[in-house]
Nucleic acid binder design. Sequence first.
DNA 1: CAGTAAGCGAGACGGTACGTCGGGTCTTACC
DNA 2: GGTAAGACCCGACGTACCGTCTCGCTTACTG
Lengths: 189, 189, 189, 189
Amino acid sequence: MARSPMMRDRVSASILDAAATLLAEEGDSASMAQIAASAGVGRATLYRYFPTREALVRGLSSAAIDDLAGRIDAAALDQVPVREAVARTVRAFVTAGATWAALARIGREDWKDPVDLETRVVTPVRALLERGVADGTLRRDLPAQAVVTLFTGMLELGLRLVLEQGLGVEDASATTTALFLDGAAAQES
Amino acid sequence: MARSPMMRDRVSASILDAAATLLAEEGDSASMAQIAASAGVGRATLYRYFPTREALVRGLSSAAIDDLAGRIDAAALDQVPVREAVARTVRAFVTAGATWAALARIGREDWKDPVDLETRVVTPVRALLERGVADGTLRRDLPAQAVVTLFTGMLELGLRLVLEQGLGVEDASATTTALFLDGAAAQES
Amino acid sequence: MARSPMMRDRVSASILDAAATLLAEEGDSASMAQIAASAGVGRATLYRYFPTREALVRGLSSAAIDDLAGRIDAAALDQVPVREAVARTVRAFVTAGATWAALARIGREDWKDPVDLETRVVTPVRALLERGVADGTLRRDLPAQAVVTLFTGMLELGLRLVLEQGLGVEDASATTTALFLDGAAAQES
Amino acid sequence: MARSPMMRDRVSASILDAAATLLAEEGDSASMAQIAASAGVGRATLYRYFPTREALVRGLSSAAIDDLAGRIDAAALDQVPVREAVARTVRAFVTAGATWAALARIGREDWKDPVDLETRVVTPVRALLERGVADGTLRRDLPAQAVVTLFTGMLELGLRLVLEQGLGVEDASATTTALFLDGAAAQES
DNA sequence: CAGTAAGCGAGACGGTACGTCGGGTCTTACC
DNA sequence: GGTAAGACCCGACGTACCGTCTCGCTTACTG
């Protein structure tokens, strides 16, 4: 059936859109019925695409991770100096995150698809940080895994600057990048 | 009734304990009935103390903030050099946070009592950072509000190092402090 | 709890009443929600009393059989001549049945609680017919079990005369009794 | 298309067969999908032939009534004595009914096509009973309409003897006929 | 020391969301 | 042009949880 794949994607997309909007607005209290209605689709159809509320959130998360992974790929992190690559990473996350604000309103563990996120986002970031350590751009006296965690966490903080404080994407990214790279302490020239 | 106040506190405490444990274990899916049972208390009594699930979470949050505020007071932030005060703040939060892991599993906006947290925790932190800027310890080229947000966010990240990666409290605090103050970039000689 | 048993009965009765009315009116298409609403009770409460639609119908059936068994007991079938006892049985069934018209609109096998109906209604009827055969009032050339089945079936037919044809209870009973006892053929002088 | 009419009948027949079997086995809980599958036909096709579940049941009923009407016609009721004609009617119904056991498991009002049944079955029966009254074979002291209802009802009871008690068709018919004509009371010679 | 008022457990209740399922309508591809 | 496949909407079903309520009991203060 030719229409199947296309239609499936269209419907799926409109459901994800509606879900993203509603969940961002009303948080976890948005009901499946509301989401279905807001997607212009029957409740049964919603369940056909995402058999569970949790599956829907995972779908949202998958889309977000796809989006983010695309931006990170496009950033060509391994072809620019480490400091620039870090800046691009922050900018990519903050920009993407603004699109998927819904996920910021939902519990942490729920949506982090452990596989996708790890392989498609964390891995390049880890590689970037390792390259930085290797070429002497980044300090080597901090535990690597902890730095990865802190950096990915700071990506969310940069997003929070935009969502909760109304900072511009560029300002938020720049500040976050600056803090991560050089810290808050005044440089003792 | 003389026993009232004491009893109220005892019961309230055991409810909060049970809630903290259960919510930390099972997240948002723990039901009020489970919490009541696990506190050795009738469901009705639970509702007498916390008329709403949200009120219960707020109670948890209040206790956590009390705890944290106590530690911050005890840290005498304004009587030690800024760098040391920052380290103490991180350590205080990470230490306290481990006790209140439950709150880390629940959505952001739910539990942040906007008043208490702001006045008792954020204010001293803001003061500390302002002092740092004023005395030249901290850089002045970053937007103050954003730095406050990033720093408080990094406190949570430090906690995450402990909860999710099994890092020790001291290591997590040290790494977080180092990253916040001096950044990840290698110092240029 | 003193109120429990009484209240349970009151609520249960009002649910059964509402169910009887609605099912008699609209047949199987009446929804559980409608029944609950019409009983002045929440849907959840309805399910607390009758965990399944089928259980509700069984409850209806139980009440109907109780009712009918009471009337049959009151008829003292074994203390009057067989012909009179047959007449009383028919009258009892037709009278009771009019109260439980709902069950006439629902599938046969669903509601016939095989135990209660058999022991409390069919047994006395069988005894009555056997007595009739023994004392020479009833013919002995027909298979006993078949006669029991035909008689109990004719009870339903007598009820049908009332429900579907608007015959009076007395007329319907008399005609049914007459047909069962003496048949439709003219007595040969 | 020349093959249409034939095909329509073939498909229609296989659907009716499947429906009769399934409904007889599982009662009202058989789903349209099951019936379609069991007829080796797509669900959509089933709906093309019988746009509604109710229409399908009516179709079943129509076929049953056709069958029954054929047998009644063949019985030449008006050309034999009344008692014999009654016996033939009972035998016709019981024989036909065994083929359409499905309908015995479904609610009364659903399948009785008011037109067909009335004109093709009840009318001859009524005529037969009226003839009996007119020629003195049947008693005249019972309300005619009620006797018709009771007699048609007893036809179903005779069928029930076969379906539920395993009686042979001949025995069941004979007993039912005997009971209807001469009653259960011993003849007072 | 007996009476009493408060807090407690137990649990029924109305309401609402969830996930499942069947009915009936429709479109698309195949033959 | 009719058939099979199957997506879609609608609404009922049965389950679970929330927050409210009313009981009857215990318990610790009070006259």
